[in-house]
């Protein structure tokens, strides 16, 4: 499966912006194989979905540190998805090989029996004992049966896993995770991040996907609670920017990544150079739109 190309990604954009854009595209690619991959007869769609999961996983491995806990969780989920689809693919490759071997042996044994029966107008049943591969069928057929059974069980596991991802809001939460760091929060890096070991500062920085830094207040959490960053910063010697002059002198260690939103609240893909685009290419193998998880799922606790 050819990946959709992201043309014109601006090399001077930040890593986090570039990864955010690319992850969105790869996440969409992954979902484009649903529902076709959920049909047990569509082994090729499952194989393509595995490749899409692998591409997404490698991106997340690289950039999870930019996007927080759920991105790390998503990396593991992609690995699990890739593994189960990989095992299905192994069965899909192996079973036809075994069946083809059985068919080939049958042809060769039939030819051997015919040679023994040359000049007769029928096959004497005793001649079957001369078939050179007669002992091999039992093992091969049993192996084929075991592969068929294993494939069925793995497919059931895959469907259950995919359903579980949907129930847990995998897509919505990952999209939120990669976007929320750009919605007004600060990314704390270097010594400041290491200094925040526990307590209110940690709670503030990892306030959850919906926590938003508000200058002069702190981090407003989804339930309306406010974490007082000022006290945390004073106590821990950590640093946060945009929160007032008291901590401005140490703000060099904090990287603000706020960016404007459009009228719908959407964040434009800043990593794209002017005039650049995402090429849909052949990523949507079946011409079907992306599958959707529950649209109203909100990010919840980190897994």
């Amino acid at each position: 499966m050819k990946a959709r190309q992201i043309k014109g990604l601006d090399p001077s954009a930040s890593l986090a912006d570039g990864l955010e854009l690319t992850i969105r595209v790869r996440l969409d690619e992954l979902h484009s194989f649903v529902p076709s991959a959920l049909d047990p007869a569509r082994g090729a769609a499952m194989h393509d979905m595995r490749i899409a999961a692998k591409r997404l996983r490698y991106l997340l491995e690289l950039g999870a540190f930019c996007f927080g806990d759920f991105a790390r969780t998503a990396t593991k989920r992609c690995k699990e998805l890739q593994d189960v689809l990989g095992e299905i693919h192994d069965c899909d490759v192996m079973l036809p090989l075994v069946l083809a071997e059985v068919a080939e042996l049958r042809v060769r044994d039939a030819a051997a029996i015919m040679r023994e029966a040359a000049g007769s107008d029928d096959v004497d049943m005793e001649l079957v004992t001369t078939a050179p591969h007669r002992a091999a069928y039992r093992g091969l057929e049993l192996y084929a049966a075991s592969l068929q059974a294993r494939r069925a069980l793995l497919f059931a596991r895959f469907v259950a896993f995919w359903d579980d991802l949907g129930r847990r809001g995998f897509r919505a939460r990952l999209e939120h995770a990669i976007a929320e760091r750009a919605a007004g929060r600060a990314i704390v890096t270097g010594p400041a991040a290491r200094a925040i070991a526990d307590g209110p500062a940690e709670r503030a920085i990892a306030a959850g996907p919906a926590g938003v830094v508000e200058p002069g207040r702190g981090v407003v959490e989804p339930d309306g609670g406010v974490v007082d960053l000022g006290a945390a910063v004073a106590a821990l010697g950590a640093v946060v920017t945009e929160l007032g002059p008291a901590i401005a002198e140490v703000a060099a260690e904090v990287v603000p990544v706020a960016r404007p939103q459009d009228s719908r609240g959407a964040i434009p893909p800043r990593a794209l150079a002017p005039g650049a685009s995402i090429d849909a290419g052949s990523g949507d193998a079946d011409g079907e739109g992306p599958g959707e998880g529950p649209s109203d799922m909100r990010p919840a606790e980190a897994e």
Partner: peptide, 18 residues
């Protein structure tokens, strides 16, 4: 397991990160 990338920062330019 893939190695950690030393000194990789979210704010690095894509070029530097590359």
């Amino acid at each position: 397991k893939s190695r950690e990338i030393p000194n990789l920062e979210a704010t690095d330019s894509l070029r530097l990160a590359a």
